[in-house]
Simulated scan of single mutants.
Amino acid sequence: MTKIKLLSAAIIAGSTFAASQAALAYEAGDVLVRGGIAKVNPEGDAEGMLSNENGFVGSLGFMVHDKLAISLGAGEEFEHEFDQDAYSGKFEQQPFDLMVQYYPLGGLDSRIQPYAGVGANYTRFSSESDGLSIDNTWAPKGELGVDLMVTENLALNGFASYTNLDADYSLNGVSNEADIDPIIVGGGVTFSF
């Protein structure tokens, strides 16, 4: 009698585990809401000239297929201080992204959901110091990330992205172009429903 109870408990536990795994898969029609903290590291011409900054980022995505999502993301305004040719100043940049993301394990029973994305970034510049003017700009962007499922609706998220950002600017009446090329690394949470 004890063996039958033990076997029944094992079957129920195994069934529950299998069902919980199936519930952890991303599928077509799912909505993904991400939020977290990121560090922005300017590269290119701006490396060493612009300060690194931390801030909040987030996105809203929709799974159009088990393995494919469209995502709209944004970050808070990141303030950068800089020194160039005896000129010290500051400005703020705010990124907006439209991405297509590929989930190689989408639709599969997996607690780990890596993804890769490509898309377009629009960066709005504001609060420039006197004598500085930076044009808002469009740029290509790529990203890599991973979600580690905690429950069927909650995951821990980690990501890194690169934007090939060339910004036209004017400093004391002299126009030029700067390669800012931010690398953003961050983490947070993903809610899916």
Rank of each mutant, 00 (worst) to 15 (best):
T2D: 15
K3I: 05
I4F: 11
L6M: 12
L7E: 09
L7V: 04
S8A: 15
A9E: 15
A9Y: 01
I11G: 02
A13W: 00
G14I: 00
S15E: 06
A18H: 00
A19W: 06
S20F: 04
Q21F: 10
A22T: 08
A22F: 10
A25C: 05
A25H: 01
E27S: 14
D30E: 00
V31H: 09
L32E: 09
R34I: 04
A38Q: 14
V40T: 13
E43I: 00
D45F: 04
S51E: 15
G58P: 09
L68K: 02
L72A: 14
G73C: 00
G75T: 02
E76N: 12
E77T: 14
F82Q: 07
F82T: 00
Q93M: 15
M99K: 07
Y103C: 08
G106S: 01
S110M: 01
Q113T: 03
Y115I: 04
A120T: 06
N121K: 11
N121L: 10
N121V: 01
Y122I: 06
R124N: 15
S126R: 10
S129Q: 04
L132E: 05
S133R: 13
T137Q: 14
W138C: 09
G142K: 12
E143D: 13
L144R: 07
V146P: 07
N153E: 05
N157S: 09
Y162N: 03
A167S: 12
A167K: 01
D168K: 09
L171N: 07
N172S: 12
S175Q: 13
N176T: 13
A178P: 08
D179A: 12
P182E: 02
I184L: 11
S192H: 14
F193H: 06
